[in-house]
Write a protein that binds this DNA or RNA. Structure first.
Lengths: 200, 200
DNA sequence: GAAAAAAATGAACATTGTTCAAAATTGGGA
DNA sequence: TCCCAATTTTGAACAATGTTCATTTTTTTC
């Protein structure tokens, strides 16, 4: 029977992903070490390389699970209101909340860079695009004149703007705005945008 | 005479900063190596550590010079139009242009992270804040009701939003929008925001 | 021009990702 | 149950890289 072997291999994969996620959550991507992951997962360093091609590959899988989580959050936000305006506000607020409450895990999504010349695998890019759909749905109601293509572009632009605010705020680089002010500002910002749409 | 020593030390500092900037411009922050910088600057690796505390310190100084460049660009944009609306659009367009034409150097500004628990030195944070002033000036005309504090916050939020769009677009992560569409989208976006303001 | 001070050097060290020969484990046939 | 071949796991060894520091070279001063 060889299904047992497969199962064990899969268990190791999960143990490694979980160990890596735990480490990232506690100390951030920069402090992640192959040896630490292996120790936490209860295996030798070398074993990591029998189930993943390298540490980047592990991180990719951690990010994949984060995107799944984030997808659930966005789905819930989408169902929390009826009007497209309210949905967009809810999506924004929940995105900020997720980023705040899962800072390191969320940051890993954007701070992780593959080595020069290695594009992200297609399956991972696709996971990103799924998220954009949650924005496109309410946006389509607000701007019925947009075709599929334009809608996709607008969704990305809107996400990028909100993400920029959340990102620079939480990382406290350029932008230092008090945490409790960010939500207020974001909501005001989204409403400004929506009103901008309506006036067109 | 010891001014000669100082001058030589200063020359080495500049040679190292220039070498690092060159390397970053060509291959990005991730490919930067202490040994390469030293070779390009015509000194031994060890010499680098006689004028900078570590490679992070060198990067900080490269970023500092980038901020100066960017400051000039923003000043020019500010003088290119009279109405605050037009100035904000010009600032946005020039920011996109700078990021596009100096991709790696610009990315280093945001991708560089100091090691855990080492806050950016105060002088460097201050350099960032100067840039926000260029946004605050036209914004003050558009929204005269805002006090100094609120104006500073709004400037940061506006910058963060524009930066988010430029950033995710150029880095081609989440957001894949064709390059030549980004400018159009950004201008439309800024105009939406401004109209949002006016409607308040 | 010589001694002292300063600066520059690059070999050596520590840390880390990754590999691979050897050891341990497993599966299945007798 | 026991054995052997196949598989898996292991961790020492390797390579790359940031950083240090004893030694060498250069500069300053008298």
């Amino acid at each position: 029977m060889s299904g047992k072997r497969e199962a064990k291999k899969e268990a190791l994969r999960q143990a490694i992903i979980n160990a890596a996620r735990q480490r990232i959550a506690e100390s951030g991507l920069d402090e992640l070490r192959a040896r630490d992951i292996a120790k936490d997962a209860g295996c030798a360093v070398g074993s990591l390389y029998t189930v993943f091609s390298d540490v980047d590959d592990v991180i990719l899988h951690v990010n994949s699970s984060t995107l799944t989580q984030l997808g659930s959050v966005m789905e819930a936000a989408s169902n929390s209101a009826d009007s497209p305006q309210e949905v967009l506000v809810a999506l924004t607020v929940e995105y900020l909340k997720f980023a705040t409450e899962n800072r390191n895990i969320w940051a890993a999504l954007f701070n992780h860079r593959l080595p020069e010349g290695a594009p992200a695998p297609e399956w991972h890019v696709a996971e990103h695009l799924v998220l954009m759909r949650w924005i496109a749905i309410p946006l389509a109601k607000l701007r019925p004149e947009l075709d599929e293509k334009a809608l996709a572009v607008q969704s990305r632009i809107l996400f990028a703007a909100v993400h920029g605010i959340v990102s620079l705020s939480l990382e406290g680089r350029f932008v230092a705005v008090r945490r409790r002010d960010i939500e207020t500002q974001l909501v005001q910002f989204i409403n400004d945008i929506i009103r901008g749409f309506e006036k067109e």
